[in-house]
Amino acid sequence: MNGRADGRELILSRIRAAVASAPDVEITRAYRTSGVPPEPVDLVELFAERVADYRAVVHVVEEEGVPAAIAAALALRGVGRPVVPDGLPPGWAPRETVTDDPPLGPAELDAAGGVVTGCAVAIAETGTIVLDAGPGQGRRALTLVPDYHLCVVRAGQIVAGVPQAVALLDPARPLTWISGPSATSDIELNRVEGVHGPRTLEVVIVR
């Protein structure tokens, strides 16, 4: 493609000319990169509170209580056979599940009642869960198309703020940062939960 090469050189030469005499700028990072001032807080508590602010359903349980919490949540929701990704810790999922092997098509995912996953990192200050498509999380479509997402977060995965999360994540993996259920502010700038992504987000935090 001829135009392609021309466009590239044209843009780059314009840039060179435009900034030739501009001074460079030093970057000072005086913002917080650790901790949640003003006072030390319980990250589990803060995370639970912030996720709930976005109208996600939140449970805090001990390790041995995880299977029961998941089972109860699925039962209440009426999800008989949730989609589960590879690598979900044994015992978390109910007996009846749908696996992504062979990969599920969009229609099959759409027909599923829900999905159960873990996560890579969670952020207390913003109430955010980050999935990196690693074990127990699956590819991105799994947590997108089903209308219900149940996510298990271990206390050790919760960091205080955005900088700590960015430092832990691998940009080579496709990442999905989730803060509450799907929402929109497009009607009169008021937040309404539930549009195209899962309309219900349920979070089980393991102390």
Partner: peptide, 18 residues
């Protein structure tokens, strides 16, 4: 932007994925 601590979804991807 929306006056939220974090927007509901942020996606990042590098090159051709999945």
């Amino acid at each position: 932007s929306t006056g939220e601590r974090m927007n509901p979804y942020t996606s990042t991807w590098t090159g051709a994925v999945e």
